[in-house]
């Protein structure tokens, strides 16, 4: 076959570093828009299935299990830590200047959860810890998930 001889001298190897810039808009959608509009006002909503009563967070317009419609319900945005990790590497696997704590937070009054940052000392965080969201200043909110800066112990 054609591989009787392979390139053994690495200095003869050729490649080029390519990059291509791609841009999108990411549509929040009907349920997302409803949530982010509420978030700008400092409020949280979830979505309750009209069929089975399961309460979804993140909110969405349909129930995954029944494939039926949902209605929006108000929630506090507070919750309980189900799991957490102390992330020490950035996206290039280099050490982060300051480790980030990520948590799965089960939100009160819902069957759902949010994955977000926790602002606490790693040694103080525990499963079952009560936490509440800290939002950006009202005039800085953009209607994005990052309008929640982080969660903190409540």
């Amino acid at each position: 076959m054609v591989f009787n001889e392979k390139i053994v001298n690495p200095t003869e190897l050729r490649h080029w570093e390519g990059k291509i810039e791609l841009y999108w808009v990411y549509t929040s959608g009907s349920a997302g828009d409803e949530f982010f509009k509420a978030l700008k006002k400092g409020k949280f909503i979830a979505a309750k299935c009209k069929e089975c009563g399961k309460v979804y967070f993140p909110p969405r317009i349909y129930c995954e299990y029944d494939f039926s419609e949902t209605e929006y319900v108000n929630i506090s945005g507070e919750g309980t830590v189900r799991a957490f990790t102390v992330a020490r590497l950035d996206k290039d696997e280099k050490p982060l200047e300051k480790p980030e704590i990520y948590a799965i937070i089960d939100l009160d009054g819902t069957d759902g959860c949010i994955v977000h940052l926790l602002n606490a000392k790693p040694e103080d965080v525990y499963v079952g810890m009560r936490v509440k969201p800290v939002l950006k200043a009202k005039n800085k909110r953009e209607g994005r998930i990052t309008d929640i800066l982080y969660y903190k112990p409540s």
């Binding site: 957490f84 996206k91 990520y102």
Partner: peptide, 19 residues
Amino acid sequence: PIWLRQIGNAHPYYFAALE
């Protein structure tokens, strides 16, 4: 991209670590 990608600066390995 709406609910997860924008959060934090860590390597997405964090998601496996949460699990």
